[in-house]
Each structure stands twice: as structure tokens, then as C-alpha cells.
Design a protein around this nucleic acid. Structure first.
Lengths: 110, 110
DNA sequence: TAATTAGATTGCAATATTACGATAAAGATT
DNA sequence: AATCTTTATCGTAATATTGCAATCTAATTA
């Protein structure tokens, strides 16, 4: 035990969970926000922005990449990271949909 | 080591991370979706909906509650759970904001 | 080519999460 | 009161995450 039982849930539920999990750490939220702020891709520089050691940052970047939230391409000596719009759009759509439903229902209880 | 260094990040980043982390497991996504589907609060019944043992479900409910995503109130014998709209609205606003920015920038790279 | 730079990988320790059997707590039913 | 129902808690095992020092890799520069 200890491993998540992904096989019992739908693909969509797992997909959302993977994206949410990747954002489930403040350092990774900070990385996304930094990539948003600097508007263009960033080659090098991310490590200096975070209060964490280089291997730790590298690991967080890897997780964001595995989850599909960022893309990284080799740019000479450095690596160019940028946001994967698709993933964030998926999250946006998911929560917009939930908000819509909540709006409509205006639940009568609690 | 092993513990997240929350103190190095902003309150907002930590707040988003807490909400995202709570949704970082398919069972918890499924719980939220179930609460959405049944439109009203649910007293009892959640355990039967999930392919997990009762203590496991109870634990997931606790985590959703700690993160502020759901509310639970005692209803006689059972417990009445429902969605905390505020938390989901916060997530919706966060990702809508990001999507907006991405839309405006139409990044030129990658 | 040697030194430098950017980033990944390895290895490890500390901590957290996931899952569940057993058990407890508390109101409801008989 | 004894039993049932519902949910929480405890204890524990398996696994995952977080963080970093040390090291490695590969392109760059001197």
C-alpha cells in the first residue's frame, strides 16, 4: 500500500489530479508565476529566483515538465523553459465549468 | 529535510498550493465531482461511491476539509458534506487570471 | 584543450502520503 | 439496554515527496 490507486478513477479525474498535484507545492506555483511574469521563455535564471538549492529547483522543474505544465528546450548552453498553455487552459476550463455549475445551483443547504 | 519550506513563499502561493495539493489525488477530485453532481449536500453515501475502504475515504474527506474545499456538518447520525464555493471560486479566479494573461501575451517563443 | 557555466542525476536523510484492518464514538433503531 | 449505522481515529506498512551535497554532462569560453 501507499501507492495511489489511479486505475479506479477516470482518465479525466487522473489528468486533473496530475495537474493539480504538480501545482501542490509553493515552489512550483512560484515557478509558474515567474514564467508568467517574464512573459518570454526563460533560459537560465530560474534557480536564482527561488530560495532553494539548484538540485531541488531542477527536480521541481522536472515535475512540472512531467505533468505537462511547462516545456523546456535546449538553447545552446542553457535550457529554455516556458509555460505550456494547453495545460493551464485545461485547468482554467475545469474550474470555470465547476464555478458555472455552482452559480446555477445556488445550493440551498449548508 | 523532507518538509516543504513554506516560509520562503508568499501567502498567496502557499494558499494556491494548499488547494491544488488537496485536488492532487483522483479520489479527492472524484469526491468534489460527486458533490457537484448530487447538487445538494450529501449525508452518508460518499463511501459507497468510491472504490476505497472507509477509513481511506474518511482521510481524504479530512484533507479536503482541512484545505477548505468542503464543509461538513453533523446531521443526526450521519455527516452532511458539501462544497465550499469560496475555495473553488478562488481556484477559478486564479486560473482565469492566468489564462487571460496568456491570451494577451501570445508568447512569441517555443 | 583547460576552465567555466548551466543544468541534470545520484544518493541519501527526513518527512509526508496513501491505504487499510481494527477499533472507538455517537446517534438511531429495535 | 442491546444492536445497528455512520464516521472518525489509531496503528502500521508501503510508497512518495522534499531537500541538498556531491557529482556528472555538455555546451561555451578563454
Amino acid at each position: 500500500m501507499g501507492a495511489t490507486k489511479t486505475e479506479h478513477f477516470t482518465d479525466k479525474q487522473n489528468a486533473i489530479a496530475i495537474l493539480a498535484k504538480a501545482l501542490g507545492h509553493p515552489a512550483r506555483v512560484a515557478i509558474i508565476e515567474y514564467l508568467m511574469k517574464v512573459d518570454t521563455c526563460i533560459c537560465g535564471d530560474i534557480v536564482n529566483e527561488l530560495p532553494l538549492a539548484q538540485p531541488t529547483v531542477s527536480q521541481h522543474l522536472k515535475e512540472l515538465k512531467n505533468a505537462g505544465l511547462i516545456k523546456g528546450s535546449i538553447e545552446g548552453n542553457a535550457i529554455c523553459y516556458c509555460i505550456n498553455e494547453k495545460a493551464l487552459t485545461k485547468l482554467q476550463a475545469y474550474f470555470a465549468n465547476i464555478s458555472d455549475s455552482l452559480e446555477k445551483k445556488k445550493s440551498t443547504c449548508c
